[in-house]
Simulated scan of single mutants.
Amino acid sequence: MIRTTSAPTTTSSSTPVAGGGDGRRGRAQGEGRHPSRGRLRSHRAARGVLAGALAAAVLAGCGAKAEAKAPHATGKAPTGKATTKPGRTSGDRTAVSPLDNPDGTRPGLAALTSQAERARGAQYINGVRTAAAGRQTGYDRKKFGYAWMDTADGVPMARNHCDTRNDLLRRDGKNLRFRSGSRCVVVSMNLHDPYTGKDIAWKKQKAAAVQIDHVVPLSYSWRMGSARWNQAKRQQLANDPLNLLPVDGPANNGKGDSGPSEWLPPNKDIRCAYAVRFAQVAVKYGLPVTRSDKKVMLAQCGK
Rank of each mutant, 00 (worst) to 15 (best):
R170V: 12
S219W: 06
R33F: 11
W222D: 09
K204M: 09
S258Y: 10
S261H: 13
K142C: 09
D22C: 08
T290K: 10
S12T: 05
F278L: 04
P241V: 01
Q300L: 05
S219Q: 15
S13G: 12
M189R: 03
D140F: 06
A207R: 12
A53R: 13
G87S: 05
M157Q: 11
V247P: 10
R177E: 02
M297G: 03
G87W: 04
I200G: 00
D92V: 07
T130V: 13
R33M: 11
A51V: 07
G134W: 06
R37D: 14
A57L: 15
M224H: 10
V187G: 04
Y220H: 15
S90Y: 01
A66P: 09
F178D: 02
V289Y: 11
R120L: 11
L169F: 14
K143I: 00
K76S: 15
G91K: 03
R44A: 15
Y139L: 09
V128N: 12
P107I: 01
G138V: 04
S42M: 06
G63T: 11
A28N: 15
D269F: 00
P16E: 01
T89R: 10
G181N: 07
L54T: 07
T10K: 02
E67T: 11
R106H: 07
L287I: 03
N126W: 03
R24T: 13
T89I: 07
Q231T: 09
Y285T: 00
D293K: 11
H214A: 02
T15H: 06
A111K: 04
A68Y: 10
K233I: 00
S90C: 13
D172W: 01
Y285C: 05
Q235L: 05
P71A: 05
P35F: 00
D100F: 02
A275H: 08
N126V: 02
R177V: 15
A116K: 09
K81P: 04
R47Y: 10
T79G: 15
A122P: 02
T83E: 15
Q115N: 03
G138R: 04
P266H: 06
V49E: 10
P288L: 00
W148R: 06
G197N: 04
P78I: 00
Y146E: 13
P241Q: 06
K295R: 14
S13P: 15
Q205H: 09
V128H: 12
Q123I: 00
T79D: 15
S221K: 05
G259N: 12
V187E: 14
R120G: 13
C62V: 13
T94Q: 11
S36R: 09
R177M: 02
S182E: 05
Q29P: 06
G121K: 01
R271T: 05
I2T: 14
P217S: 07
R129D: 10
P288D: 03
G256E: 01
G104R: 06
L40Q: 13
D240T: 01
A77N: 13
A46S: 12
K142N: 14
A201C: 00
